[in-house]
């Protein structure tokens, strides 16, 4: 379910790329510091986007240097620790934990083994994270329970399960004030978009193993790409509209790149089936 939210690199300015990279590395360091040596394994592009969104607006970005987790001999520019980054790290651990539990339950014994081992290793980290953001943990739990319930009863609506997941992501941002409203709208539609993209991506697989798939339940077994694309584009549209109302100062160009270019391209790849290859590549060619 993770990894869909990424910038479109050819259109990034160098300084925005550096900012992205520094945020990615900073989040990695923050995870390591707060949750120990295994936690950086949870790092991905989606959580980086979350960190970028939650960051307090500042006019200029000044990175500090820190040691890379993957290669301690290298020193890389990283964004310094801040409350926003710590919040993003805590929420990442909570989300990743529930995602792992989900795959443990979905897969059989052998295929679920890696997830099982990882979730066993991460149990202490997750407990800590849940203590640090109890509200978020509670919302995630209840939304996932709701989602599981909808999946069990094979809900024919596309919007209802997507709504459960969208509310889950929405609760990642504080809701107070103008910025809070903007963020919660943005995250809601990001969650909706991710859920739908993931459902479309799993369509073939779910058809073979005759599992529930919201896209199949709504549009029939082979899906209806045209209609699904329209409704997903609409969520992207609303994310863009929300983004323009928020105050993200020096992070604006990067966020615009992700919302206006990165996400539509990923969507396109999910629809034409090339996403699977790209996703696989990503694991080995992850930012080093």
């Amino acid at each position: 379910m993770f990894g869909y939210v990424r910038p479109f690199r050819p259109e990034l300015k160098c300084r925005d790329f550096d900012l992205y990279r520094a945020t990615y590395c900073g989040l990695c360091r923050c995870l390591r510091r707060r949750y120990g040596l295994i936690a950086p394994m949870l790092l991905n592009f989606d959580f980086t986007f979350l960190a970028l969104l939650l960051w307090e607006p500042e006019d200029r970005f000044t990175p500090c240097r820190g040691r890379c987790h993957a290669n301690p001999l290298r020193k890389l520019p990283m964004c310094p620790d801040s409350p926003a980054l710590e919040l993003a790290a805590d929420e990442s651990v909570v989300l990743a934990w529930w995602k792992l539990r989900d795959s443990v339950q979905d897969e059989g014994f052998w295929r679920g083994l890696p997830a099982r081992v990882l979730s066993w290793l991460l149990r202490p980290a997750c407990r800590k994270a849940a203590r640090r953001c109890p509200e978020f943990d509670k919302t995630v739990r209840s939304c996932l329970a709701e989602l599981a319930e909808l999946e069990r009863e094979e809900c024919p609506s596309l919007d209802r399960p997507a709504d459960a997941f969208a509310r889950l992501l929405q609760s990642a941002a504080p809701r107070e004030g103008t910025q809070g409203r903007v963020l919660s709208q943005l995250l809601y539609h990001l969650g909706r978009w991710i859920y739908l993209a993931d459902a479309r991506d799993d369509l073939e697989e779910d058809k073979l193993s005759s599992r529930y798939n919201p896209v199949a339940a709504r549009y029939g077994r082979s899906g209806d790409d045209e209609a699904l694309r329209l409704t997903m584009d609409y969520s992207l549209e609303l994310m863009g509209a929300a983004l323009q109302l928020g105050d993200f100062s020096c992070r604006t160009p990067l966020l615009e790149n992700i919302v206006y270019l990165g996400l539509p391209l990923v969507e396109r790849a999910v629809f034409d089936g090339t996403w699977k290859d790209i996703k696989k590549q990503k694991i080995w060619r992850n930012d080093t």
Binding site: F8, F45, L261, T288
Partner: peptide
Amino acid sequence: GLDTMDCCTTMLCLNCLCGGGHC
């Protein structure tokens, strides 16, 4: 721009979606 891209270019571009290479 993006809408006018053909399938092949999209593939190329997607490979550049942050992930590949070193900067």
